[in-house]
């Protein structure tokens, strides 16, 4: 741990120097494209962070790899769309997206997962089964159509931006929401009693239970928040792009990679991972279209090769 070996610096240089060369080259030859790609990457990262933070929160505490996280994303998006369509209130849609997914998450934890505590693999299998059933039920009910939201005019215009000229306001709004959610999560985990219990549970579940805390309640709350974040991201991401079947896989994949890269169970790790993956995806798309996904994969391979628990992951895992 204390000896940062020479080879590590060597590998860092191998990665950093070409990256620096690329940045200089791209920003000199076509600053407009570079900056807009950068902005796109950061705002996509914001969306990924929203999805992945819930995933990593649940995983950190309960060791439950919730592979139905993408389905909760899609579920929240559909529920938000239904309400948004009926009331024309986008903010209400966001709230409903959060609440409906949180409710489903709560019910799942209380009715299924609490009975298989510690059986990690079985829980994962159950979430896989649930994701198949949920995806098909939603396809049945909502069909294959593409739904899009109708957000307030004020946040759906464009604002002036350096170099690029104009930039969609909504993407900046997503970034702001992600930052706010990140800060709220930080505050919740570090400054509230429940948050402290969650952190204590991440460190040592049995000790927490032994000190008289109702662990099941903490689990239920965490699962509800984690699922709710997926639903919230569903409405926000659905507004940025659209809501359609298949999005569940896409965002499940995104949160998986983000969490693997950033470190499993760590919220700051999710932020770092989201930033890396979001940027890699957008730069890949802009500069090497057919191989965009290879960059994401390469980042994952590199991180796993050098830090198997992720960039900010902890060793114990």
């Amino acid at each position: 741990m204390n000896r940062m070996r020479l080879s590590n610096w060597f590998w860092l240089a191998v990665i950093a120097i070409p990256l620096a060369v690329f940045v200089v080259w791209a920003s000199v030859t076509n600053p407009r494209q570079f900056v807009s790609t950068l902005l796109n990457g950061v705002t996509l990262a914001a969306l990924y962070f929203l999805v992945a933070s819930g995933f990593t929160l649940v995983f950190g505490l309960m060791r439950n790899v919730n592979l139905a996280h993408g389905s909760l994303y899609l579920f929240g998006a559909y529920m938000g769309w239904v309400v948004g369509d009926a009331t024309d209130d986008w903010f209400l849609a966001v709230a409903v997206g959060f609440a409906s997914a949180a409710l489903v998450g709560f019910l799942l934890q209380v009715s299924i997962f609490r009975f298989m505590q510690g059986q990690e693999l079985r829980q994962t299998m159950v979430t896989i089964g649930l994701s198949i059933v949920l995806a098909d039920l939603m396809l049945w009910w909502f069909g294959g159509e593409i739904y899009s939201f109708d957000p307030p005019r004020a946040i759906f215009k464009s604002i002036p931006m350096i170099v690029v000229g104009k930039y969609p306001t909504y993407r900046i709004v997503v970034l702001a929401i992600a930052i706010v959610i990140g800060l709220v999560l930080w505050w919740f985990l570090n400054r509230t009693k429940v948050g402290m219990m969650i952190r204590a549970g991440v460190d040592d579940r049995q000790m927490l239970a032994a000190s008289g805390v109702n662990v099941q309640r903490v689990f239920a709350i965490t699962f509800a928040i984690g699922a709710g974040l997926a639903g919230l991201a569903g409405v926000i991401g659905g507004t940025a792009l659209s809501v359609s079947p298949g999005e569940d896989t896409r965002y499940l994949m995104a949160s998986l990679v983000v969490v693997i890269v950033g470190g499993m169970g760590s919220i700051p790790g999710a932020a770092v991972g989201a930033l890396l993956i979001g940027l890699a995806e957008q730069f890949g798309l802009a500069y090497a279209p057919t191989y965009g996904v290879v960059f994401t994969f390469l980042i994952m391979v590199l991180v796993l090769a050098f830090r198997p628990t992720g960039i900010l992951g902890r060793r114990s895992a």
């Binding site: 060791r63 790899v65 592979l67 990690e120 693999l121 994962t124 896989t249 994949m253 998986l256 990679v257 969490v259 693997i260 499993m264 279209p289 057919t290 191989y291 965009g292 996904v293 290879v294 994401t296 994969f297 994952m300 796993l304 090769a305 198997p308 628990t309 895992a317």
Partner: peptide, 27 residues
């Protein structure tokens, strides 16, 4: 390199990456 439950996540990520690769690669 990682253990137990992580295996499922990493292999899923590898599999989905492969899917996106073959879908996007025409050459």
């Amino acid at each position: 390199r990682t253990e137990g439950i992580y295996t499922i996540m990493i292999t899923l990520a590898i599999g989905v990456s492969f899917f996106y690769l073959v879908q996007q690669n025409y050459s």
